[in-house]
Design a protein around this nucleic acid. Structure first.
Lengths: 173, 173
DNA sequence: TATTGTTATACTCTATAACTATA
DNA sequence: TATAGTTATAGAGTATAACAATA
């Protein structure tokens, strides 16, 4: 498996200089690397993409020990709370296309994390269920994700974090 | 040019039923397509990705007449406010990798929207500038983007929109 | 020795068309 | 005729290694 690069931005920013705005030390380039991006920063879309990218990095790091990518985790978590769900339902809920779910499901099956059972009412469909091992791994991963989220949004207060989520949901729900 | 699919979600939701939670009409599938995704909805990352995806769709539609994708627009807008910027600076600002900017810059050049001039102080670098046509198109595109953003975030008040942007920037800046 | 811009390339993500088996 | 799951495949997005010219 090829790893996503750990993080570009985390190389350039530190806890002491989280904004990366400190004047460059003497050894750095004489030109200023950062451009004026004031207009882009007035856009919800631009900021949402940048923020998501930042959180993604933390997410990927914390999920690596479990061998899960974001979609993998989303599928497992949905199955934990919706046993017997079908591929079609996962696709509708996560807004992904059926062909792109096939290999993912197949891999989770091969790893022994999920099980395909005939659907009780529809011979075409397949009900997906977590195995006991899948349930354990998903529960662990959910705890790790919750912690990763808190770490990635450490600059926000609890109220700010809740407010942010509420505002984001107003955009897409 | 291949068009990104206009929008999955906008087909399934309407102004009258923005959440898509209304019980399915008689003709629809007997099973409920939507799963319980309460856990995922507690995650900033998940919500940011979904919200960005939603805005992306609107953005792509509105930028299609200009023949611009998101990165294209970001580059043009940065050059409008930072004439003479280098590829290296664009990469650092937008968090993209140099090899992935080459064709993009080359295409904008071929279209006559930007110009490459020798850098005044550094023989290795190339200063990028908008052409008059590039300036006109960028100004038009910026107005269209501003309007697209307002439309895509129409469910938010001005204060909410500003608050959302502020909270997102706390995550990545 | 380090950096800018570039080429070539590979891997992942996302999308469409078309097939099968069931309904 | 429509839907669930699948196959094959194409295109976009993102990543690394390595090179030439310049600092």
């Amino acid at each position: 498996m090829t790893m996503k690069r750990t993080s570009r931005s985390s190389i350039k920013t530190t806890a002491a200089d989280p904004n990366g705005t400190t004047p460059a030390p003497a050894k750095a380039s004489s030109r200023n690397d950062r451009l004026n991006s004031r207009f882009l920063q007035t856009l919800v879309g631009y900021n949402a993409r940048r923020a998501w990218s930042q959180i993604s990095t933390v997410f990927a790091e914390r999920m690596a020990p479990y061998g899960l990518k974001q979609v993998d985790f989303s599928v497992l978590s949905l199955l934990a709370h919706n046993p017997g769900a079908t591929s079609r339902q996962l696709c509708a809920t996560l807004d992904i296309l059926p062909p792109n779910l096939v290999n993912l499901i197949s891999t989770l099956d091969s790893r022994g994390l999920i099980e395909r059972r005939p659907h009780p009412h529809d011979g075409r469909a397949v009900g997906l269920h977590l195995t006991p091992e899948g349930e354990r791994l998903t529960a662990d991963a959910e705890r790790a994700v919750t912690q990763a989220e808190l770490d990635a949004s450490a600059k926000l207060s609890t109220r700010e974090r809740e407010s942010l989520i509420h505002l984001l949901q107003k955009l897409y729900l």
